[in-house]
């Protein structure tokens, strides 16, 4: 029963969702609306689970007095403070919540992400080597796209090239980058998307038919 009930529910609801797509009329449309509402309601506890997991992790760190314990304390204080401030004073225009978000969270998060530029530059210097034909192709493509996707590509082209060349091609770097993005890159990407989609369809059918049961912890 513990195994059959979830399998039966999965099969019934899976079939209903497929059927409603081909028959968009009552009662299937009503069932579709209800099922979507249920799914949205079910997904909300995921936020609670995430929150409880975060609390559990940092609580354990504090209890065990790990070296990073002060950061866990800061996490708790920040979390509680933002929740209290938001609940008491609101989250809209001119509130303390918005002030903290604007002046602390936004600069901090933007700074963390900005650090990527430095690490990417360092990684590119160390790892981008023309060791093989494939690596060389990738390197040349990356350089062309990097140059052409910012104004300096066309600026250099139009500054260096003589008028005769410019009359033939006004902005060659941009044209080449555009071709790379619209032809070989897009073809590869399209193949990946189709592959993923076919895989998702196959897996979904296997789940609906009860062949794939790993989501219930079976076979682990």
């Amino acid at each position: 029963m513990k195994l059959r009930l979830p399998l039966a529910l999965c099969f019934i609801f899976g079939i209903v969702m497929i059927v409603q797509f081909f028959i968009p009329h009552p009662p299937f449309t009503d069932m579709y609306d209800k099922l979507i509402n249920w799914t949205m309601i079910i997904s909300i506890p995921a936020l609670i689970i995430g929150l409880s997991s975060l609390i559990q992790l940092h609580y354990t760190r504090i209890v065990r007095k790990t070296p990073n314990m002060p950061y866990s304390i800061i996490t708790f204080i920040s979390m509680a403070f933002m929740a209290i401030v938001g609940l008491i004073f609101g989250v809209g225009e001119g509130t303390i919540f918005e002030w903290i978000f604007k002046n602390i969270q936004i600069p901090m998060q933007a700074t963390m992400f900005s650090l990527l530029a430095f690490f990417i530059a360092s990684a590119a210097y160390r790892a981008f080597r023309a060791r093989t034909l494939e690596a060389t192709l990738m390197l040349v493509t990356a350089v062309v796209v990097m140059l052409a996707r910012v104004p300096i590509g066309s600026f250099l082209w139009q500054t260096i090239m003589p008028d005769a060349v410019l009359q033939w091609k006004e902005n060659l770097p941009e044209d080449v980058a555009s071709w790379i993005l619209n032809v070989p890159s897009m073809a590869a990407r399209r193949g990946i998307i189709l592959g993923i989609s076919l895989g998702a369809i196959a897996t979904s059918i296997k789940i609906i038919l009860g062949i794939e049961r790993s989501y219930m912890g079976v076979g682990e």
Partner: peptide, 17 residues
Amino acid sequence: SQSMAHLAIILLIIIAN
């Protein structure tokens, strides 16, 4: 800024190679 950073990275890649 983005143009100059891209140019710097490209030059670094060329030097490294």
